[in-house]
């Protein structure tokens, strides 16, 4: 109730809520990135449990390109803040 003592309860709820949405977004981005690059790069016959050299470099490039697509789409959507 006292305005001088920092944010009100409702404002706090909104700060917490925004932070929560922001983190959910990052987690979802990471999960989609992981699933998508697994799909694109990993040999599905599972003949061994190690990642081979080809898979490793594919993963690095896949993450890098996914990042670029995220930024490119962010620009198109006119968002000013960095999407990640």
């Amino acid at each position: 109730m006292a305005a001088k003592n920092g944010p009100t309860n409702l404002e706090k709820e909104q700060i917490f809520g925004m932070a929560e949405k922001e983190m959910e977004y990052r987690v979802e981005l990471f999960n989609k990135l992981t699933q998508t690059c697994f799909e694109k790069c990993i040999e599905k016959r599972y003949k061994e449990s190690e990642l081979n050299m080809g898979e490793n470099s594919c993963i690095d490039r896949c993450v890098s390109k996914y990042w670029q697509v995220t930024n490119l789409v962010g620009q198109l959507l006119g968002s000013n803040r960095p999407p990640m």
Partner: peptide
């Protein structure tokens, strides 16, 4: 799991 860790590092 290895894939996921590598993606995490690059990310």
């Amino acid at each position: 799991l290895k894939h996921s860790m590598r993606v995490g590092m690059r990310f």
